[in-house]
């Protein structure tokens, strides 16, 4: 990968990496650091990574970085405990998409990662598995559970409203 290609990756993919990290970490400063660390690693290994695999490489690095940070701050455990029937609706929403975005942040890490990579980045199950270390079946189940949670979240919210 040349410097020009690397810069193309920065232009095209840094927004997505930043969104991915921000959704996981909910902290802009930490998310920006993840983006910087991720691209730093790409630059160091630019001779071994080509343009075709750069996106998956970046998301994999970013994902691992996020998980490490969440583990350090003990946030993973709390997120894993989220139960689909125990969500609350105390926020004010302007549209359904905002509700869904809020609901996504309540998802367990594995489900959140899988559904975000699927919908935001358009990855298939196999690619998501390569990034996250899950099997294709696990990816599919996680996406299904995420959609099920989001559907029920919306349904419950509409019932309250």
């Amino acid at each position: 990968m040349t410097a020009t290609e690397y810069n193309e990756c920065v232009s095209d993919l840094s927004d997505g990496i930043f969104r991915f990290a921000l959704k996981h970490l909910r902290d802009q400063f930490e998310a920006e650091n993840v983006v910087q660390n991720t691209f730093e690693k790409l630059w160091v290994r630019k001779d071994k990574v080509d343009m075709q695999t750069a996106k998956a490489f970046l998301f994999k690095i970013a994902y691992n970085n996020c998980i490490d940070l969440l583990r350090k701050s003990n946030r993973t455990g709390a997120l894993e405990e989220v139960h689909e029937n125990r969500h609350s609706h105390s926020e004010q929403y302007s549209d359904a998409m905002e509700i869904v975005r809020d609901a996504v942040e309540k998802l367990p890490e594995a489900q959140k990662t899988a559904v975000m990579l699927r919908d935001y980045e358009g990855y298939d199950y196999r690619s998501i598995g390569e990034i996250t270390g899950m099997t294709e079946a696990q990816v599919k189940i996680n996406i299904f559970r995420a959609r099920q949670f989001l559907k029920n979240y919306l349904k419950d919210l509409y019932a309250v409203i």
Binding site: V10, D15, R19, V35, Q36, A96, R101, M116, K151, L154
Partner: peptide, 18 residues
């Protein structure tokens, strides 16, 4: 309705990575 649509989130420090 469960399909997520990308939010307009922009990483503003791209120039530092170039």
């Amino acid at each position: 309705q469960t399909v997520l649509t990308p939010e307009p989130i922009v990483f503003t420090r791209k120039s530092e990575l170039m």
